[in-house]
Amino acid sequence: MYGMVNKALEGMVVDQFGEEAWERIKAEAGADIDVFISNQGYPDAITYNLVAAASTVLNRPATELLEAFGVHWVVKTAREGYGELMEANGRTLREFLLNLPNFHARVSLIFPHLQPPRFVCTDVTDQSLRLHYYSHRAGLTPLVQGLLRGLGQMFSTPIHIEQEAERAAGAEHDIFRVSWERAAAA
């Protein structure tokens, strides 16, 4: 996982729980790293350990933390670091979601070691689509839900997410039915 993910996790914890909580979490996870470099690859285990440690230290379920992390990623991290590009990725939630496959195609060119997830949009209507999420990593489904909610916030578009297929429950991949209100679309 690239450093930006761990850094984003750090940003969320520091934002919501303070610097000291993050130090405790790092100590609990055994991650003796002062600064995560955004475009340097780190073992996935570090990220998983950090999430598990945060769950222990903050006494919250990992799923809840992951979802919150997804929201935070979109609203704070991506916007701060890549805000213009994010915005340039689409004028509306719909546009943004439809651009997601291209977005990840580009990202994987720029970050050759990144093993980005793959998104496919099907059944696209004006107010909904079906988002297929493929990842070689397990357990990040709540993160995706958080990302979607974050996008809803970014585009000020009330969003409804319904998970239609779940990899954790044996499905081949996760499928979300995402719908939104047209009125709020820019």
């Binding site: 475009n39 670091g81 890549y82 590009l85 970050f111």
Partner: peptide, 13 residues
């Protein structure tokens, strides 16, 4: 632009 941005982020890091 993305690369530039990423380099900048790294620089900031």
């Amino acid at each position: 632009l993305q690369i530039l941005q990423s380099q900048r982020a790294t620089l900031a890091d």
